[in-house]
Design a protein around this nucleic acid. Sequence first.
RNA 1: GCCGGAGUGGCGGAGUUGGUAGACGCAGGGGACUUAAAAUCCCCUUGAGCUUGCUCAGCGCGGGUUCGAAUCCCGCCUCCGGUACCA
Length: 828
Amino acid sequence: MRETYIPQEIEPKWQDRWERENLFKLRGNGEKKYILEMFPYPSGKMHMGHVRNYLIGDVLARYYRARGFDVLHPMGWDALGLPAENAAIKDGRHPAERTRENVAAFKAEMKSVGYSYDWEREIATCDPEYYRWNQWFFLKMREKGLVYRRQNRVNWCTGCKTVIANEQVKEGLCERCESPVEKRLMPEWAFRITKYSQRLLDNLDQLTEWPDRVTSMQRHWIGRSTGAEIVFEIDGKPGVSLTVFTTRADTLFGVSYVVVAPDHPLMAHLVTDETREKIAAFADEMAKQAAAQKKDEEPEKLGCFTGAYAVHPFTGKKVPVWAANFVVSDYGTGAVMSVPAHDQRDFEFAKKYGLPIHTVIAEAGQAPRDAAALTEAFADDGVLVNSEAFTGMTSADAREAIAKALAEKGKGGPVVTFRQRDWGFSRQRYWGTPIPVVYCDKCDPNHEGISVPESQLPVMLPKIDVTKVLTGRGEPPLAKVPEFLHTTCPLCGGPARREAETMDTFVDSTWYYARYLSPHLTTAPVDAETAKRMLPVDIYVGGPEHAVMHLLYFRFWTMVMKEMGLVSVEEPVKRLITQGIVNGPDGRKMSKRWGNVVSPRDIVSKYGADAARTFVMFAGPPEKDIDWSDAQVEGCARFLSRIWRLAFTHQKSARFAAPLGNEAGKALEIRRRVHQTLKTVTEDIERLSFNTSIARIMELVNFLTGVKPAGDAEEAAMAEAMRLLAAMISPVAPHIAEEISEAYGAADCLQIQGWPAFDPALAAKQSAKYAVQVNGKLRGEIEVPADMGKDDVLAAAKADAKIAPHLAGKTLKKEIFVPGRLVNFVAV
RNA sequence: GCCGGAGUGGCGGAGUUGGUAGACGCAGGGGACUUAAAAUCCCCUUGAGCUUGCUCAGCGCGGGUUCGAAUCCCGCCUCCGGUACCA
């Protein structure tokens, strides 16, 4: 090796050799480890967040490969999606062209960082070879009844005359044309994910290696609640009834009004001639407001009397039916019963509109509160009052009893509901997977959609004249492509029209992990045999922003694939790592707006891939956000130079292939330090504490820098130290590690050499430091042999010159002994 | 709003189950080497106080539990992610 560390010289060399030796391919034997990072949407440029995401996976892949596992570590492209289409609307470049370029740039940048991917398994979702299987899944799931048409509320831009994404709505106006945006009901395709809600919830308990925050968020998202449905007949309208859902059936006797969503489907039956116009105006206004409302603001509660009265199922009393903006039609039943005395939202609404308030729950052991004097609702559980036969029951008992009584009367009963809704997946976009459906007036007069036969897949995205088709206005883009739109009916052969909508790109990312196993298989999306061996994914790395939606869709799809016999696991991922953001040097999120974007390309060319890798892994634990810091990267580059200099300085010791054995003195100390470091580094990597594992290596390097080996034993120990150092640093800084390993006589790459084992005798601690406290305050420290027992340690502590004065003249009340760490004397 | 996180020196962070707060790195200071600078190597570096060894304070804020709390509990504050058509 040469004297100076020049990463730009050695890095491409080793990258080429790894590729030549096919080091990152699946062997097909031994214990498997599937390490996956969330694949990128190939936007303009790779940023540091990507670098970190893939690095966490890469360090683990390299570590486990060295440990002898048969590692699968693939990469691909989540290539379809809105940004490429929006860019095309602006500048007229075809999304496919732009995507192709971005992918090439991304891939080149990834290679320069030295990621250990098996590029032969690369996939791209915009490739018909991939998206045909999205279409195939659609057909199979439709057969299973998991796909259906429904009406859904969407953002409708009144200027563009098209549906736009939430993201494109800025304060109620369209981002592009600044026209007002409305909520509008539109037909769409949906997956029946709610059929799996219970299983998605139950299985969370099995996901013990997922972060609690993720499982907790999913649990809340699914939102199982047990409650009751209650049917309120509408007075004077035989056959018309409102069903409400409540988790507080115990408060049923306190109902003073019923509230429905402004666009409730039964609204036409509720309004009277006097209220019809007023309600229509109200609903219209609320639709506009819903779209304009900012997410972090709670809208003012607004209501409007519908003119109808609901009949209480037990008392027969009539209560007014109101429409209000805080009830939404697509959650629950779109109607709620209001009990102002015991629900804060209902209370505020009742006060505002002068509606009656009845107390029906009392705090246990206390008199019921006077409804007229309430300043806020009493929302806790308690004991029922003024509730006919249920008076005196506890809330919990009453919920069951009332639900049961309702069921007996045929006025509802107990139900389980989920907050989670079905997954609407059709989009009015071009750059997505065409939905394989045609409409034929003859065979399908209700336009439910005729599935395209499997033999006709893929339904290809047509070539288009970008400036004519991608305008962002009017009907979906594909509806403007006649040669795509007009086709023949698969049933009658007559003229038919293709579905012009495409699939949500979340569909692409539900099953890509399984496609890597057999990326070019033409007979099925997944090879079931390979899947049996390789799944589940052992470690999945990605951003916490995907904690809920992507990961729920991902889990849902896996359940479906299991039912289809494609995979043999029900849960796709064993261990999940959600990594934090890489912020700019100023601590703000990297963005063009702040001018704080750091490009991986610049960093690699300036400091080398190894320094960039070391910094990213050293800056903090994987799940935490980190701030970019040029000074810290320089520090990492300096650390690598120190290693290099160390290796260069002691190069002649490489003539010793192994330590001599039976070392004493300095040679023994070197070996102990090295083996102790190897032990903690290994443990740290296993628990994903990469930053501390690097810190431990830095300590070792600092120690070795001060060592001047004299004699064979010390030189041989130094040679061993350099070899183990190279191995330890190799997952993080693989290029410099290979160079040193080679200089110290290795013929094989480090991935082949394997992860070294530490010698337990050398790694064992020789002595223990005890903190000695008196009454919880630190008063001294003693160092004793590591194997000294409790009594001896306590005696030594009491005898210590610093401790004795603090105990003098006091009575010892308690002695606390924490083995290997601390002693605390409680004395008065 | 709702759901989920996070907050430790000048800065990034360390501190496996409650057990010596500040490992390691950055920045800063001092020294060695050098004609000089860079590079390198060594030492110091939470704050306050003084008698330089000790005392007190200290992990977003306010309480509590405990021999002992960054860690557990209660109540706040600030920031970040998600909120179903960004991926």
